[in-house]
């Protein structure tokens, strides 16, 4: 990975946190043979699509693999007794 790619990772993570289309601080970016790969989870399909829009604006022409998932948390009946 080039130095330039290292900084691009940082800037993309920053943009994903700040951009209103995503606003997610917990996404991680790596570069795999020239392709930027974003991983993590967001709350809605709109925010998942936002990942691609933000990356396209920031890194035009760079290939992107969006591995971000949309979380869906079921209601479970587990109870923890606090001692």
């Amino acid at each position: 990975m080039s130095g330039n790619e290292t900084y691009m990772i940082g800037h993309l993570e920053e943009a994903l946190a700040r951009d209103p289309r995503v606003n997610e601080q917990g996404l991680h970016v790596e570069v795999d043979e020239g392709t930027f790969v974003v991983r993590g989870s967001v709350s809605t399909p709109e925010r998942r699509a936002g990942v691609e829009a933000v990356a396209a604006d920031l890194l035009p022409g760079h290939p992107l693999r969006n591995e971000v998932t949309v979380s869906d948390y079921p209601e479970l009946g587990e109870v923890e007794a606090i001692p």
């Binding site: 979380s71 948390y73 209601e75 479970l76 587990e78 109870v79 923890e80 007794a81 606090i82």
Partner: peptide
Amino acid sequence: RNVAQPVLGRAYATFCL
């Protein structure tokens, strides 16, 4: 207890005291 939803992996945690 950390009840961040991504940590719980469920809608909410329930505790009994």
